[in-house]
Amino acid sequence: MREPKRPTPRRLALAAGVSAAAAGAALAWGAIESHLFTVRDYRIPILPAGTRPLRILQVSDLHLIPEQADKIAWVRELATLEPDFVLNTGDNFGSPQALWPLLHALEPLLAFPGGFVLGSNDYFSPQFRNPLRYLLGHSGQAARRRTHPDLPWQAFTQRMEEAGWLDLNNQRHLLAWDRIGIDLVGLDDPHIGRDSLPPRVASREDSPVRVGIVHAPYRRALDTLHADGAQFIIAGHTHGGQICVPWFGALTSNCDLPPRLASGLHTWPDCRRGAVSDRDPSWLHVSEGVGTNPFVRLRFACRPAASMLTLVPRGEGAF
C-alpha cells in the first residue's frame, strides 16, 4: 500500500495562507455587517376582533458609543416609520460618555408614546470578556457581582419620563388603544437579578390584552410573564447571537434561553421541548438588537435590527 504523501512546507504555508485570508475576509464582513441596519416586520394576532392594528416599534441593545454617527442617524430616521408606540428594551449604553449622544439619537422617537425597561448596560459599563466564554455559558453571574452602577441610568430614566414615556421596570401601566386597554407589564433586567413581578391592579383584570416586556429573556422571566397572563412577551439582550453560523443560526443567547430562540417570533413555553402549561402559549419576540458588544464590534449572519411589531386581531395569522 502506498503511503500517503506528507504535506510539504510549501503546502502547509499555502493552507495557512488560505485559512488566514478566509478569517480576514470573515472579520472584514463582520465589521461591515455591523453597520447594515434593517427593520424587521412581524404580525402578532392577540387583539380582540374589530380592533385597529397597533404598530409597536421595538428598539433594543443600542450599546451606543459617542462616535457611532451612522447608528445615531439611523435611529433618528426610525421616526419616519410613524409607529403608534415605541418600546426601548434596554442596553442603550456602550460607554459612560454616551448619555447625550443617546438622547440625541432617541429624540425624534420621544415624540411618540413609548415605554422602556433597562438592561445591565444601562446600569453598568461594559467590561471585556473573552468572546469564547459566551459559548460555555452566559455573563449573568459575573454581571451580578457588580453592585454599584457607574452609568447615568437615573438621568436617562428622568429624560425618558419627562418626554412622557412609561417606566416599565417592575411596573404595570395601562395603554389605551382603540376602545380597549392593553395592560403593559414590565420587568427590570433578570440578567443582574433586578426582576420582580409588580402586583396586579384589580381594575385591569378585565383588560383583554396583556403584553410583557423584559430586557433579557431568561426562562424564569418568561415563565413569570406567561403565568401572569401575557399573550405577548417582548425581549432583547441576545443580539440574535451576534456571530451566527449561516443556515444554522445562533451559537449562544447569553442567557438560559435556547440559542435557536435567540431572535425572531416564537411561542413560550417552547412546546417543542415538551413544556406543559395550563395556559395557551404566549407569543415571544426576541430582537436582534441594533448594536454589538463594544469589544467585539462584529456581526456575522445576523444584521443589526429594530422591529416593527404589529398587533392585529386574533385569527389573522402571525408572521
Score class of each variant (00 low, 15 high):
Asp223Met: 03
Asp188Gly: 03
His215Lys: 08
Arg219Asn: 06
Asp189Ile: 04
Asp188Ser: 12
Pro208Ile: 10
Arg220Asn: 13
Phe156Met: 15
Leu187Lys: 00
Leu222Lys: 11
Gly212Thr: 06
Glu161Ser: 09
Leu175Tyr: 14
Pro190Lys: 01
Gly193Gln: 00
Asp167Glu: 05
Leu174Ser: 12
Asp178Trp: 03
Val211Pro: 04
Ile180Glu: 05
Arg172Tyr: 01
Phe156Gly: 04
Trp177Gln: 04
Gly193Met: 03
Glu205Ile: 05
Asn170Glu: 14
Leu174Lys: 08
Val209Lys: 01
Arg159Asp: 03
Thr157Lys: 12
Val211Arg: 02
Gly164Phe: 08
Ala202Tyr: 08
Asp195Pro: 08
Leu197Ile: 08
Trp177Pro: 09
Gln158Thr: 13
Arg159Glu: 11
Ile182Trp: 08
Asp206Leu: 13
Gln158Lys: 15
Thr157Ile: 12
Arg159Phe: 05
Phe156Trp: 14
Pro190Trp: 00
Arg219Val: 09
Pro208Arg: 08
Ala202Arg: 14
Pro198Tyr: 03
Arg210Ala: 12
Leu168Phe: 01
His173Gly: 07
Gln154Ala: 15
His191Tyr: 15
Ala163Glu: 06
Asp178Leu: 06
Glu205Leu: 11
Arg210Ile: 04
Gly186Cys: 10
Trp153Thr: 00
Leu222Asp: 00
Asp189Tyr: 02
Asp178Thr: 03
Ala163Met: 10
Tyr218Val: 01
Gln171Gly: 11
Pro190Tyr: 00
Asp206Phe: 12
Gly164Trp: 07
Val209Ala: 03
Glu161Phe: 10
Leu197Ser: 11
Thr224Glu: 09
His215Leu: 05
Ala155Arg: 12
Leu166Trp: 08
Leu197Lys: 10
Asp188Lys: 00
Ser196Arg: 15
Ile192Gly: 02
Arg204Leu: 15
Arg179Leu: 13
Ile192Leu: 07
Asp195Val: 02
Ser196Val: 14
Asn170His: 10
